[in-house]
Design a protein around this nucleic acid. Structure first.
Lengths: 206, 206, 206, 206
DNA sequence: CATGAATGAGTATTCATTCAT
DNA sequence: CATGAATGAATACTCATTCAT
């Protein structure tokens, strides 16, 4: 009658994690085409163990994403609370962190998107939490004047996602990431005051 | 016995193009999981005909990318030559065009990347041409003062690629694309002169 | 160390029955493809408990059949002893009962046969008992003149089995069962006396 | 543009038949649990070839039934037309034939029923044809006075199906089949005239 | 040359059975 | 003793690729 939390759950829980880790590894190594079998091998468990924990390949992939997003949310929360100093640093630091993370986890993008297309059930909740975390960071940074007022969530998320995907896929190195984010962030900052004029073009004769 | 470049070449060439078009269509419709068979059906040819023109699925996908990139290169060339007026418009217009294109061609990103990871042979040439085309646009726009001097090719291409991928994958609508590119381009423009200071913060209580 | 027939026997026996009942239910609901797991769930026990009582899926299925046949045997015995009145009624009533039973227990046929093909061990005993029960009913009905003298066990059992299987599989409704059995039983009755001639054909023109 | 009837269709058609034959063989040998792979092996073709001809395991099984039923229908037609002599012989001969056939084709019953449960598409047509063929034989036999007037299709088909299933499953030998059908057919014949009384029971005093 | 039939390795998933807890 | 987690063989089905016609 009771079957909720008993002993041996330790092993089971450990296996769930092992599968999740293995899936990340294999996905990173072999891309979206990775087979359940290779994940099982990497995890050192039987195929059935995967299916006990995740009823479906898609479910496994979704779990990976949910977990990652959750980590980011936690990180965002940490930043939000820890930094009294500079809301701008928190905001930009968060995104830098996210992208840096992505770079180390190839093929998440595949998953992210493929699964993300018909994101459902448990995802929506995580998604909402993520959205809220970002929204809070953005609002604070805008209040602090570190980010332009007219920056809105949709394009922010769109560009963030774009950057993550590309960083993962194309394995940006640290320098490239820094430069690309630098450019991007410059576009996020409050722009020139009205009435500002570009310096006279040198108009180098051809 | 000898057959290098003569009669039926017309038919053959026509078939190659039909396959290429069909592949784009099907890829856009069914994503990376599309089968060679459905491409053949879409093209109205037999499976064998595809394999006559493209020894491998990968080769076909590569050909699609090469062709697309070539179109972009041509477009860039047109812009470069046609516009004496404004090098900035040419530069920004080109990227806007590219991204808008992407949006209409879902799943190219899959292909682009999946195939692009070990892009080889014929690709390098096209890639070089692309690079040169972009380089020329960038140089002119910088000379005209429309783009910051410290913008370099690697990060430019990285961000461009990122934006294209995301636009395709997530099907950005026109408004989102405009806003996202607006932000991105703001980061590309010459930034504030030295000594410039942000306007005094409103310091809204609360 | 020694444990043959003592305390917890109650629980154990109860579990055996629960599993048996659950198996019948699930088999009826899901057909031959039913899994051991769903039987366990239906029974409200763990998988291991099933395997403690029945070493094998096949053994469980066999047990179901044995049990059912036993019930029928008991029923036959009841009829044989209770009815002094009419041996014919006992005979025909028994078979009607059997078939009606079958109708309510879909998928037994699958089991019956699939398992029955290599019916072994414990079965032979039950089978013999069944055979004897039927034989007794038949003999008495024949002695009473209610059943033709030349009806022998093999074809009787063959047709009985056939009718049960079909009734189960095709879910005969009450009316169909009644009509089909009516026909069958007419064939079991003493046939026309020698010298009997069919009535003159109406010889309907056309 | 045209792709309906070309050469090499010979091979393809031959393969379709080979698969069908192999499926019958394997089904007879291994029962309903037979795997597509063993059918392919028996047929001496690749797995893909089966799936080219029959999109689904179920479709293959359905094809087997349709084909068999078709053969029976043809047989029925032959009998109906050929026999001016005796409509009764045609009727009883047909069913004897059907059951004899079944005996030689174990496991058709599994298929017949399993597939028959959700009989669809192409089946309904064949089913209708079968029904009509039987109906014609029955009507003629009844007109000829060889079969009782009150025998109706539903119970006729029910008992026929039952007998086939059992004959297949339990591998009735020729003698058993003859005796069982004899009994069954006796029930189909016109029964005793009204007013007929059973011969006086010997009333053996036990 | 074009066609599409054939091939079979590879995929996700299920399920009987075992055994550590 | 009961439990249910783990196992992995087995299954239906897909799809890139080859090759006879």
């Amino acid at each position: 009658m009771n079957a909720e939390d008993r002993p041996m759950r330790a092993d089971a829980r450990r296996n769930r994690v092992r599968v999740l880790r293995a899936a990340e590894t294999v996905l990173a190594r072999e891309g979206l085409g990775a087979s359940m079998r290779s994940i099982a091998q990497e995890a050192g468990v039987g195929l059935g163990t995967i299916y006990r924990n995740f009823p479906t390949q898609e479910a496994l992939y979704e779990a990976i994403i949910v977990e990652r997003v959750q980590r980011l949310i936690d990180h965002a929360a940490t930043l939000r609370e820890a930094v009294d100093a500079d809301a701008g640093d928190a905001f930009f630091g968060f995104f830098t962190e996210i992208v840096a993370n992505s770079t180390r986890q190839r093929a998440l993008a595949d998953v992210l998107v493929e699964a993300g297309i018909d994101i459902k059930a448990g995802m929506s909740e995580t998604g909402k939490a993520m959205r809220e975390a970002v929204e809070a960071l953005l609002a604070r940074a805008q209040r602090a004047g570190a980010v332009r007022e007219d920056l809105r969530m949709p394009e922010l998320l769109a560009l963030l996602s774009a950057t993550c995907m590309a960083a993962e896929r194309n394995q940006w190195d640290d320098a490239l990431r820094a430069r690309a984010l630098g450019l991007l962030f410059d576009g996020f900052r409050p722009q020139r005051p009205e009435g500002w004029a570009p310096p006279p073009k040198p108009d180098r004769a051809r």
